[in-house]
């Protein structure tokens, strides 16, 4: 991990309140699921850095992207950055997804939980087995990069208002696919806590190895402050830290 300052190469609005910032990373290697801590500088900026999963990464070309929704002052400041503006970044941080040696890979992203999954889909696509990508949100406008996802696997959409794909939550198409899968797939999920709890339960029901990327309020991002605690089924410690021991955990280890 490193702390560095780098220029914004591109900041694109992809949908209502959804932005993608591209910058040149000063690290050559990153794993899908890892994140960076970005300083939001400016008037009324939040005190702490904000963590963002790496959305896309190419170490050789020196490109790193984050995808985020404008929800507060910090992301508002980031959404206003122009090409050439400076970013202060610490990363890459945390432990990413571990691709499983499975015949079938199911990727499940809800809302902004899709952010780390593109990097993962790209990696899984190059390896073995089939990749099914389940993307879900409240409405179609909140699934901004479905076309890019399509390059790396079969995309199955669902929205709460029915504006894209099936009108349902993500568990409906996911369970349907789990039922008919010839062998237990590996599941990789990121999204709201309730969705992940549901995916974890489905994974357990169909004996699919399930990894989830969790979110928690965070200060240091380095494993120092013990701030981003998540309760785990572990006899040694009640809590693990999302920033260092996660953000990706085996779903069966989490106290849902």
């Amino acid at each position: 991990m490193k702390n560095f300052k780098t220029e914004v190469l591109e900041n694109i609005k992809l949908g209502r309140d959804i932005f993608r910032i591209k910058f040149k990373p000063q690290f050559a290697v990153a794993r899908p699921g890892q994140f960076v801590e970005v300083l939001c500088a400016g008037a009324g900026a939040p005190f702490l850095r904000r963590p963002f999963c790496i959305h896309r990464f190419d170490g050789e070309k020196g490109i790193c992207e984050i995808l985020f929704r404008r929800v507060g002052r910090g992301t508002e400041i980031l959404s206003n950055l122009k090409q050439g503006d400076m970013l202060d970044i610490t990363g890459p941080l945390g432990k990413g997804f571990e691709p499983q040696a499975a015949q079938h890979h199911f990727i499940a992203g809800g809302g902004m939980g899709i952010a780390p999954l593109l990097f993962l889909a790209e990696e899984l696509y190059g390896k073995c087995g089939s990749v099914k990508i389940f993307l879900a949100a409240k409405t179609a406008a909140e699934i901004p990069c479905q076309d890019i996802f399509k390059q790396f696997g079969e995309v199955i959409l669902s929205t709460e208002d029915g504006t894209a794909g099936e009108k349902c939550l993500i568990d409906t198409p996911l369970e349907r696919a789990l039922k008919t899968a010839p062998a237990a797939p590996a599941i990789y999920a990121c999204g709201p806590h309730g969705m992940l709890r549901c995916v974890a339960a489905l994974g357990a029901k169909y004996k699919a190895h399930t990894q989830v990327s969790l979110e928690e309020n965070m200060a240091c991002g380095l494993g120092v402050c013990q701030g981003c605690a998540v309760e785990v089924k572990n006899k040694d410690t009640k809590y693990k830290m999302v920033c260092k021991e996660g953000p990706v955990f085996n779903a069966e280890d989490i106290v849902w």
Partner: peptide
């Protein structure tokens, strides 16, 4: 948790 919150 949550154990952390912040403001400007």
């Amino acid at each position: 948790p949550p154990r952390i919150a912040d403001f400007s």
